[in-house]
Write a protein that binds this DNA or RNA. Structure first.
Ligand SMILES: [Zn+2]
Ligand SMILES: [Zn+2]
Ligand SMILES: [Zn+2]
Ligand SMILES: [Zn+2]
Lengths: 124, 124
DNA sequence: CACAAAATGAAAATGATTTTCATTTTCAAA
DNA sequence: TTTGAAAATGAAAATCATTTTCATTTTGTG
């Protein structure tokens, strides 16, 4: 972790405030909406640097778009209704264990994972 | 799984021949190199349809590019190296149980899930 | 202050994927 | 075999996230 410039701090602040994942474009819009004139390029650069410094996690949406979250954020998974879109945040203890076990078994390190459950909720 | 047209079959054939993962662009180039004048659009369409029919897996390279591979039988998950792209298909017994438990707890039905693990493999 | 390095952002470039749309192929009914 | 509608095809244009360029501004230090 080298330096930490003004933009890096701004991005960390937004990520803290919003919690969860957000794309670069979304984070840029949020900052703009709040009156910050930061440029999209700078947002990308700050996120890149934060990822390099392992301060931020980079994952991918289903369509491939990059999404970011603060490392150490309360990690959780989602249960989403395919019909109405309602989403519940759930604990993933079993998943964490599974991911670590499997990764270890195959000699992987710096392990991460994604896991989502979807179905039809009781209201639908 | 509805119909299976000529292009779908071509793509399946290439994927069989090459084994492992390849991007749409790469698969298109391979077909072209082999003298097939198939269009890039058609390659994308065929892959989409094969993914919908669960005949091929869609994963993502580290840069977000979509990569495809013929899927083995049965339900499984992936452990992929972020660096070299090597992928292992793994059992997900714990996941299945977890997904069902959570879904039941929140009253969801027709439940499905996705789960992928990624990290750095021993060779990298 | 002066000056070099670092940061910034507008605009252009990139590159994968999708959309449009006119044309061709397929295929079953007549 | 002929015919018309539906499905398939692909070239070109459109999208859209991300990166690159490059001229300008800010920062830090002597
Ligand atoms: Zn619902
Ligand atoms: Zn988890
Ligand atoms: Zn698979
Ligand atoms: Zn590897």
């Amino acid at each position: 972790m080298k330096t930490m410039n003004k933009s890096d701090l701004k991005l960390i602040a937004v990520l803290e405030r919003t919690g969860g994942f957000a794309s670069a474009q979304e984070l840029h819009q949020i900052l703009r909406r709040e009156g910050d004139g930061i440029g999209l390029t700078t947002v990308y650069r700050a996120l890149q640097s934060l990822v390099d410094d392992k301060i931020v996690d980079l994952l991918r949406r289903e369509d491939g778009e990059a999404i970011y979250r603060l490392c150490g954020d309360g990690h959780h998974h989602h249960l989403m209704c395919k019909s109405c879109g309602d989403t519940v945040e759930i604990e993933g203890g079993a998943i964490e264990k599974w991911a670590n076990t499997m990764a270890e078994e195959f000699g992987f390190r710096e392990v991460g994972h994604t896991a989502e459950i979807f179905g039809i909720c009781s209201k639908c």
